[in-house]
Amino acid sequence: MLSLHDVSVSYDGTPAVVDASLDLADGQVLAVLGPSGSGKSTLLRAIAGLEPVASGRVAWDGTDLRGVPTHRRGFALMFQDGQLFGHLTVARNVGYALRLRRTPDAAARVRELLALVGLEGYEHRLPATLSGGERQRVALARSLAVQPRLLLLDEPLSALDAGLRERLATELRDILRAAGTTALMVTHDQDEAFTVADRLAVMRDGRIVQQGDIAAVWRGPVDAETALFLGYARVLEGDPAHVLLRAAGRSPGDDAVAVRRSALVVADAGALSGTVVSARVTPEQIRLIVAVDGVGELDAVARLDAHPAPGDRVAIAVDASRTAAIPAGPVRPGG
């Protein structure tokens, strides 16, 4: 079990990670989600032993890892761009750690791993001849070769194009489950995190602002900024929040409310009404900005067969499951 207790890391005096604490039980997959520059990769490198920890402790099964060099930690690290050794073939890359340990029957294990990641027959290729997705699979197989007690994944899929990323994310989850690997993945992509991980930690400005079961974090962002980062379109408070919650059939309280774009749907029976400000057609739905009476401008969606135009009056229904109450706090724009 990995546990971090108040870990801080700084670069030349500038703090990159501040008082990060988290626990990761064996067999679980944790995603550390954060915008770029939030310190999540630094945290990963600190766990791997590649960055010195300024204060706090990183421990495995209760043993402090301070002073344990990277190669003795038994953690495998998979980089964003794979970092395959360009001068070695695929088989030699995958078997690298096995050769270091003089594992007998390494060739069979390499074949097995390549099969696991769906690259049978690639043994003698050089990394330069592989596509981006293939390279990441080789990197994954290489990391899994010695059955690390913890697999660290640094944005493993973000160098790939969108379609491939989605498919590989699912495969990655299946492979990690099949191997029973404990893994910690950092990413800036919510979908990727949601697909691969069971637990989620959100990082911002070097601090872990929220962590827990992934669905729970999704349903209950801890503050407005986290909500916006997790893909909620707007955060409302005060009277607009009350109006919206009443329309959703909930009792209004002091909390602010975070609203996903898809929470507001144009429907004849809708409890709210407003004027369309702009409309944009996407392949799946029409995305609208609507000036809702008593609330202000909100994002909303309409079915493709509706044809709302700017200036039209529309009725809007609210889907309560796509909103989240968050403890009141200052709302900052952006996200």
Partner: peptide
Amino acid sequence: RPAEAAAALGASPAQVFRTVTLPA
């Protein structure tokens, strides 16, 4: 990073030098 990747795979500094740094 290739050297770090090797270290993360369990290579000691001397092994990292021989197998990754020297070829580069």
